[in-house]
Amino acid sequence: MILTVACAGAFALGVYAVLVRREIIGILAGAELMLGAAAVQLLVAGSGEFAAGASSFGLILLVVAAAEAVVGLALIVTAYRRAKRSRIEEFGEVSG
């Protein structure tokens, strides 16, 4: 019970961070909050009969979150090196 409420709170705080942060790194941290909360909730829902399956799926979720974080950080560092900008509203255009 307490874990579910904590996960819901962490997920909501992640959504809030994504909505209000101006720096890209803050938005990425918000996404990490959402993924972490989802992983814990997955284990809460799967505890008992489906514990091994939930742990396996949690491990795959961990891989997805790590890949997202690494690509996001590479984008942040590259964008800053190119344009010396790190705020989300300063990126009005996207070029290939």
């Binding site: 959504v15 909505l19 809460v44």
Partner: peptide, 22 residues
């Protein structure tokens, strides 16, 4: 507005997600 969205999401998630009794 963002705080309201986050609060609403928290309430919905806390109600609908499966719980493990303490």
């Amino acid at each position: 507005g963002a705080a309201l969205v986050a609060l609403g999401l928290f309430v919905v998630l806390a109600i609908v997600t499966p719980k493990r009794p303490s």
